[in-house]
Design a protein around this nucleic acid. Sequence first.
DNA 1: GTAACTGCAAAATATTTGCATCCTT
DNA 2: AAGGATGCAAATATTTTGCAGTTAC
Lengths: 140, 140
Amino acid sequence: MNDAVIDILKQNQLSVTGNRLKILSFFQKNSKALSHADIEQLSGKNFDRVTIYRTLQTFVEKGIIHTIPTADNSVMYALCKEDCGEGHHHDDHVHFVCSQCDRTICLDDVVSPKIDLPEGYIADNVQVVIHGTCKDCNNK
Amino acid sequence: MNDAVIDILKQNQLSVTGNRLKILSFFQKNSKALSHADIEQLSGKNFDRVTIYRTLQTFVEKGIIHTIPTADNSVMYALCKEDCGEGHHHDDHVHFVCSQCDRTICLDDVVSPKIDLPEGYIADNVQVVIHGTCKDCNNK
DNA sequence: GTAACTGCAAAATATTTGCATCCTT
DNA sequence: AAGGATGCAAATATTTTGCAGTTAC
């Protein structure tokens, strides 16, 4: 099951290290976006803060993960879909933040809407963040 | 012309101080969102960082300004429309970030779209951030 | 063996808190 | 006069940088 993760690293010309494998697997196991602090927690504080910063930055540059806009100052990261790559992200899908369980979830299947802008404005990409109650919390 | 600004403070039961008047007028004069650092610059470094933090926080709580989601970790603030108040923000309008001039602009008149969510999800509010080229930069 | 990755130390930056003083009402 | 607002000092948290040792290839 590590194979998929190893493949991702190799495809991006990154050395396969224990650290990177673990961080990537955190993203795969959790169906939600993770912050720097989340990863620190998940690791049991076993790897360096600096390494986490650098790993996340590398992953973003390679298009393996993407950042998610948040209204507070917290930076969240989530796995990109397959068709993202170095230099070109296609992360303009909808993000959902649940106010009950506080998870940030990528709704990869919900396409960002087309929006009519005022005269003169040209849109490159549209990011949508929806706050509300997620499926799991509604069923409780 | 300070009258409008003074009114806003009084309506929110806040003391009218020079500091607050200046910070509020920065928002009114600039047709764009401001960060903590922007305000520090605009003030000519004449008021304390801490005061800026506390003033912005107070304004957000009172519904005078709102934060804008950004993909990096920078926190941006912009004036709310009149119908925002303590506890209830209506800041679910579209925000536009120009990749040329780097301004973040509230498009108050562009309504957030209705988005079809998967079964089980309930949306409270929808925030949209569009990256692209703004009117001014397109006309150059 | 070499280039890339990691961890430690330390610097730089950002944010929060406590408290004494000053200003608004 | 009283409560709120400010500024300073300091504590805390976050992010970046440099460098030496280690690891992947």
